[in-house]
Design a protein around this nucleic acid. Sequence first.
DNA 1: GGGACGATATCAAACCTTTGATGACTATCA
DNA 2: TGATAGTCATCAAAGGTTTGATATCGTCCC
Lengths: 148, 148
Amino acid sequence: MVEMPAEERLGLDIKRAEQELIAAKQVAVRAAGLTVPQYAALFALAGSPGISGAALARACLVTPQAMTVVLKNLEERGLVERTTHPWHRNVLETRLTERGRVALEAADARAVTIERAIADELAGEERETLRALLTRCGEAIRRASAEL
Amino acid sequence: MVEMPAEERLGLDIKRAEQELIAAKQVAVRAAGLTVPQYAALFALAGSPGISGAALARACLVTPQAMTVVLKNLEERGLVERTTHPWHRNVLETRLTERGRVALEAADARAVTIERAIADELAGEERETLRALLTRCGEAIRRASAEL
DNA sequence: GGGACGATATCAAACCTTTGATGACTATCA
DNA sequence: TGATAGTCATCAAAGGTTTGATATCGTCCC
C-alpha cells in the first residue's frame, strides 16, 4: 500500500531539521517569556513599525486569524500597542512598546546563537548550496501542489 | 539591536521550505479527510501495529499528550482501535482499522506525489547533499541548544 | 517483600493554527 | 452617484501543541 519507502522521502528530512530548529528556538526565546510565533511577530514588527495585522500575518507566513491571537496575547502583556490608522479607520496600526523591544532583544540574543551555530557549521559555499536546494524543493512542491 | 540580518539566517530558509511542504501535504491528505498529524500517525501505525501511544508519539516527534489528542480524534472516527495490552495493563495497544487503512492509502497516494516531485526535482547526488547538509544543521542546532 | 525507577496514560491550562463566514471600510470605475 | 473589487478585522469551530502535574503499572535491586 505504501509504495514509497520512508527512507526515500526527503520531506521527512526537511521536517526533522525544521522541528529540531523550532524546538531549539522555543527553548531559546522562552527565557525571554516569548513563544516562537510571538518572537517572529515582534521581529517582523521591529522592521516594519505600524504595519497592519494582516500584513504582519503575511510576513510571518501565517493566516490573519492566527496573527490576531498572537497579537492579542502580546497586547495583553503590553509588548505591543495597536492604534487605529488615522485615515484608514479599518486598519489597526501595530507597534512595539518599550517593553516589547526589550523582550525582543533578550529573545533575539539567544535565538541568534542558534542561527550562528548553523551558519558556522556550514562553509559559505555550503550555505548557498543548501539555500538553493531548499528553494528548488519549494518550487517542486508548488508545482506538484498546483496540479494536485 | 538585531545584530544578524534576516538574510543571513538560514533557519528562515529551512522554515519556509518546511511550511511550503506542510501546506502542500495538508491539501493533499485533506482530500482523504485527514490532517497532517493524523496522516503521520496512521503512517507510523501501519509500520508498527500494536505500538503504544507514547512510542507512537516518539515516532512522530511529538509529545505523548499531543498524540493522545490525535488518537482520540482518530478513534472517534473509527480509523484506529485501542485495546489494553494483555500483560502490561497500563499500555493501550493501537492498531489501524480497515477504514483507517483505506484512509491512509487514499491520503498516501496523494502525499506521495509531493514527495515524488521533490525526489524528481533533485538528482541522486543532490538528494544526498541536501540530506547531509540538513543533518549537519541538526547537529549544530543540538550542540548550540545544549550549551544555551 | 519493599522501595526506587522507568514507562504509560491522563487531566488541566495556555497557546497556536486552519477553514469558513461576516461586516466594514477604501478606492476605482462606469 | 452607485456598483465592484480589494483589504482589513473579527467571530466561531475544530484541531494540534507544549508545559506541568498526577496516578498506575511493571521491573529491577536490596
